[in-house]
């Protein structure tokens, strides 16, 4: 009969209208500024730099200014200048650090490729999303002071991932220390009849992961 389709459709809209008052499956919106959504752990927004120590953020940046993220960044929004000198990192090893590390968040497209390619777990994705500003130019270009956030913050926003990263870094540091100890022991060992094999040339503590091919 002509009109049954219409009446059926009206029944559906009526069901949804009434349902939106009591059924959470039919009323799915949030009243945003008052009620905030619970973000999934994987949610990503813009990158930040991990520092080991919140009290000395610039002294304990994990970043060693290797510039891999700068090269791989698709929209080229990262800018790094290497330092001329070396500073001790969290493990006490002298390292180059970024004298300038800037991210233009008006260009950044939150793709996470910098995080994936970083061999030092130094750059991670933030979850801060209320970042609107009235200053289109200056306020969206973040320098390293604005980018640096402590590891504890990383644990807060990505707990599972951060625990994995910490475990991996601790393991790498331990392995590097053992290797360094073994190398030192081999050096100081008395020169026996057979010439001792040369200790590994590269101090592996400097590069926790093998350097990239590119």
């Amino acid at each position: 009969m002509l009109g049954t389709g219409l009446i059926k459709g009206l029944a559906v809209t009526a069901k949804n209208l009434v349902g939106s008052y009591h059924d959470p499956a039919r009323y799915t919106t949030l009243e945003y500024p008052e009620v905030k959504p619970k973000l999934p752990e994987a949610y990503r927004n813009f990158p930040f730099l991990v520092t080991e120590n919140a009290t000395d953020p610039m002294g304990t940046l994990r970043c060693v200014a290797c510039q891999i993220c700068e090269k791989e960044c698709p929209p080229q929004c990262i800018y790094i200048e290497k330092s001329k000198d070396k500073k001790p990192d969290a493990a006490g090893k002298p390292q180059i650090y970024p004298a300038v590390f800037a991210i233009d968040t008006s260009v950044c497209m939150s793709c996470q490729i910098c995080v994936e390619v970083c061999p030092f777990d130094a750059i991670k994705m933030d979850q801060e999303y209320e970042i609107a500003t009235t200053d289109r130019f200056g306020a969206l270009l973040l320098n390293r002071e604005q980018l640096a956030k402590p590891n504890s913050y990383y644990h807060q926003i990505h707990p599972t991932e951060a625990v994995e990263v910490d475990a991996r870094l601790a393991e790498e540091r331990r392995a590097a220390e053992e290797k360094a100890k073994a190398a030192a022991a081999a050096k100081s060992a008395p020169k026996s009849a057979a010439p001792a094999p040369k200790p590994p040339a590269a101090p592996s503590a400097e590069a926790p992961k093998p350097p990239p091919a590119a």
Partner: peptide
């Protein structure tokens, strides 16, 4: 539900 709303709709 979507089909009840649309598929048989005369308009």
């Amino acid at each position: 539900e979507f089909e009840a709303l649309l598929t048989g709709n005369e308009i």
